[in-house]
Design a binder for these strands. Structure first.
Length: 459
RNA sequence: UCCUGAGUAGCUCAAUGGCAGAGCAUUCGGCUGUUAACCGAAGGGUUGUAGGUUCGAGUCCUACCUCAGGAGCCA
């Protein structure tokens, strides 16, 4: 912003707006029917019909169509409005009028307008109301977020994050955020972003789990909520290199307790979005009937049962590749599995061999791990991964060694088993995948203000 | 990293190996109820880059670059 522009913004109260009209937002215009109000925002679009102008304004809360006839507004107002360019910033005053022709129910009969910054014709706003390609939109993400659909998605994201924290805050969890700069990997170093820490090698966190196991043994029930980083060379609609994860960790909790928490948690968040962001879901075009169904309990499948379903599906020709018992599920496997249910599916007790070193073996059969994946419906894939954690010092130590991890880096983690170890469990939930599912998007890049994907770090 | 596909006007896309075009955007003109308004006109091009085949290449071949979708791995 230039100094000149900043100055004119600061002077706003002295000029046109002073005469009129209380400041209102478009979302709450209905409370001002018949009154004159002041809106501060941008010109979203302008339709001209000779002596009649239809400017559409947006202010971040919604859009409203203004009406300005050459005979009904001052000549200078008509002149300013006529030919005004898309996304010019304005302060507009006008009288709110109910009109059944208006999509939002109300129109604004324009009385006055002040242009804060006029977008020049020589360099028009690049994002038109017509179609654009993914590459162009991502290059202009800093402007794309202004579009009604993108704004609606970000509002849903905010609601999901709010509800995600609220559930834990209301249920006795203490938020304890782990460090983002970490000295070592949780699960190997190949997917970590390295940074230079005053000459020492360090990494951006890929999970706060190990740290919140510590705070869980201090505080009982804890959660963390923050960004995580994975340097995986994944190029799919479900992957970001920087994403937000919320992770609860609960002392004296077993796998059954964890599954109960997971289904209650997801249901609470989805129902909060339905309750508080229905207009946004309508803008996005989401079929809310599929979301209204998201209430506990969720179907639970042992890995064994899921594996049988996949093998049968392959035999019946629904899946191209055969599923080999003992492996983790592939992406097409997961997609098919979730399409068999209209709620998230909780798959538990995977073979220990394909899972992380810190997962507690099932006492009934130690070749299986007490772990849990929650797979979202409609093919959205894994939104939660979690487990009961190894509680035994000796077992954890041998697991670390068996995975070839440096014992000295994990001494503090082993301390949690030396001093008052208890059964405990937790999971991580990826915010962006949840937003993608709740909004019905086909790619997670639209679920975060500025997506970091493989080979894209601009803007 | 591997597989597949795509790069043509500011944007979205056409163009049998034979004159590089349309819609939107921009400029000019018209229109008193438009809903991505509409109607008329104008300007706008090193067809991703570098080579090659050919009388002739946006089109065919080779390499590279960029982007997209997918696999593996994961949330």
């Amino acid at each position: 912003m230039s100094e000149e522009t900043a100055a004119s913004t600061a002077e706003t109260p002295k000029t046109e707006a002073k005469v009129a009209a209380p400041i209102a937002t478009i979302a709450t215009l209905g409370q001002h029917e018949g009154e004159s109000v002041t809106l501060r925002g941008w010109l979203y679009n302008l339709r001209e019909s000779g002596k009649l102008l239809f400017p559409i304004f947006r202010d971040g809360t919604g859009t409203v169509q203004g009406v300005a006839h050459v005979k009904s507004v001052p000549a200078e107002v008509f002149e300013v409005l006529k030919g005004l360019t898309q996304e010019s910033s304005v302060i507009v005053t006008g009288k709110v009028r109910a009109d059944k022709r208006a999509p939002g129910g109300f129109e604004l009969d324009v009385e006055g307008i002040q242009v804060i910054q006029r977008v020049p014709e020589s360099d028009p706003y690049p994002i038109s109301l017509k179609d654009h390609g993914v590459e162009f939109l991502m290059e202009h993400r800093h402007l794309w977020v202004r579009s009604p659909r993108q704004s609606a998605i970000l509002r849903v994201r905010a609601e999901i994050m709010r509800a995600a924290a609220e559930y834990f805050d209301n249920n006795g969890f203490i938020r304890t955020d782990p460090p983002i700069l970490t000295p070592a990997a949780c699960e190997g170093t190949s997917t970590l972003f390295p940074v230079d820490y005053f000459g020492e090698p360090a990494f951006l966190t890929q999970s706060g789990q190990l740290y919140i196991e510590s705070t869980a043994l201090a505080l009982g029930k804890v959660y963390s909520f923050g960004p995580t980083f994975r340097a995986e060379k994944s190029k799919t609609r479900r992957h970001l290199t920087e994403f937000w994860m919320v992770e609860p960790e609960v002392a004296f909790c077993d796998l059954d307790g964890l599954m109960e928490l997971a289904e209650n948690y997801i249901s609470y968040i989805v129902q909060s979005v339905l309750k508080n962001r229905a207009p946004e879901l309508a803008v996005i075009g989401r079929d809310v009937a599929k979301l209204e169904n998201i209430v506990p309990p969720f179907p639970r499948l042992r890995y064994d049962e899921a594996a049988k379903m996949l093998q049968q599906a392959h035999a019946d020709g629904h899946l191209e590749n055969s599923f080999e018992y003992g492996n983790d599920f592939g992406s097409p496997d997961e997609t098919w599995l979730t399409q068999q249910f209209d709620k998230p599916v909780m798959v538990h007790r995977y073979p220990a061999a394909v899972k992380a070193f810190y997962m507690e073996p099932d006492p009934a059969d130690p070749t299986f791990a007490l772990c849990l994946d929650v797979l979202a419906p409609e093919g959205y894939g894994e939104v939660i991964g979690g487990s009961q954690r190894v509680a035994s010092y000796d077992l954890l130590k041998s697991r670390i060694e068996a995975h070839g991890l440096p014992l000295e880096s994990f001494q503090w983690y082993l301390d949690l088993r030396r001093y008052g170890s208890v059964p405990h469990a937790g999971f991580g939930m990826g915010i962006e995948r949840l937003v993608a599912w709740v909004c019905g998007l086909d790619h997670v890049r639209e679920t975060i203000p500025f997506a970091r994907t493989l080979h894209r770090i601009y803007p």
